[in-house]
Amino acid sequence: MSTFAHAAEPANRAQDFEWKSSEPLVRPPADAKHIFGVKDPSIVYHDGRYHVFMTTAGTNGWGMAYASFARWEDAPNAPLFMLDKSPIGPGYRAAPQVFYFAPQKLWYLIYQGGDPLYSTTKDINDPRSWTAPQPFYKTIPESVKDDKGQATWLDFWNICDDKKCHLFFTGDNGSFYRGETTIERFPQGFSEPVVVMKEKRDDMFEASNTYKIAGTNQYLTLIEAMRPGGRYFRAWTADRLDGKWQPIPGAEMNRFAGADNVKFNGRIWSEGVSHGEMIRDGADQTLTIDPCKPLQFLFQGLDMEKGKKYEYIELPYRLGLITATAPNAISAMCSK
């Protein structure tokens, strides 16, 4: 049986999402004056520990870091390892995604370095063991070039079914893209990307993330959108990764999480809900979430100091966790 008691809620209300937020759990180390913010988290739970990969924004530009902890209460004191000290190396690195690719018995870290890149390791506990960056595409696909011939792709996200791996991404232009390859050829052989959905720029902006919903034939996609009250996520479902995505019912603009439906205990420390990842039920390439457990989403929150002006790279992003507090369209899929 689902954790939530659906019978007490009106049918239309049961579809809307409601969340509670933690305090900031991961922030730049106090002695790291050169780091302004931590962003774009990707997270897996493996062998009794959470493993979090994130973007760092600082005086040296954009890089990536890693933290590990056994319990959420340990997260604020978990040290950050800067991944430029691994073979991933220095330079522009951002928006990581981590998963275990079971067919090869390898961990994959996907990230943007302009183009989509990946590194691998056999031991996720050793952040120095990641391999040097490799590209998914040998050349920039024509379908992601704008009128000036510039690439418009970012925030890369891989998910696999039983036959294919699908590389989703956005372009800060209202378009949601997908390329595919076979399980056997991954990480090579990705097809020319196609536009899966297209809306206004602000309504389908960036940071897409897609999951398999356990016990169903359904997939969930979340995409970040923008409005004056801050960033927020919208949600769609489909019955196959190369299928048609339908807006999830229950809220205006198929809202998943944002300022309107997240409650804070005391200080409202985040302006909106931005780039993040669901807490998965497992670590493999299927990216499965359990609808029978309260959903949790690790996100970047903007903890602004009132009256202070920031350059974009200086924005004080911190990582926090939101947990669903009411029945919703995903918990309704629980068959237990």
Rank of each mutant, 00 (worst) to 15 (best):
P133M: 09
E252V: 15
W72C: 06
G215F: 04
D281M: 11
N261R: 01
D31M: 02
F297L: 06
T139D: 10
K164P: 00
P127A: 08
A67N: 04
T325H: 09
V38I: 12
Q104K: 13
G61H: 10
M304G: 08
F53V: 02
V26W: 08
I279R: 02
I213V: 07
I159H: 07
L315N: 06
W153V: 11
K306G: 12
M204A: 08
Y45Q: 08
A257H: 05
A207E: 02
L241I: 00
D203E: 12
P10C: 09
A251Y: 03
S175P: 03
V26I: 15
F256T: 00
A30P: 04
F297E: 01
G243V: 06
N328A: 10
D31N: 13
A78G: 09
S2C: 14
V196F: 07
R71K: 12
Y45P: 00
A78R: 11
A332N: 13
F81I: 12
G307I: 11
R71F: 06
P294M: 12
P41C: 03
P24Q: 04
V98C: 10
S143R: 03
D40I: 07
L319R: 05
S175N: 11
K244Q: 05
Y45K: 09
A329G: 10
W157K: 14
T286A: 10
P24V: 13
K198W: 11
S274D: 13
A326S: 01
G48F: 00
G276E: 08
R13P: 00
H166L: 02
V273L: 08
D84Y: 08
Q285K: 00
E73W: 09
E184Y: 01
T181K: 04
Y317F: 13
I35A: 11
L302I: 10
I124Y: 05
G307Q: 05
Q188W: 10
K39V: 06
L154F: 08
A151L: 04
A5K: 11
L117N: 05
E277V: 02
A95C: 15
R267M: 04
Q246T: 15
F186S: 09
A225K: 09
N209V: 12
E224Q: 09
E271A: 02
V195W: 05
N60C: 13
N217H: 07
T56P: 02
S21N: 12
Y211S: 01
M82L: 15
T59A: 08
G230K: 03
E18F: 08
F99H: 06
S86Q: 07
Q150T: 13
W19A: 08
A235L: 00
S119Q: 12
S86R: 09
G114N: 10
L241D: 13
R49M: 14
A225W: 00
I313K: 05
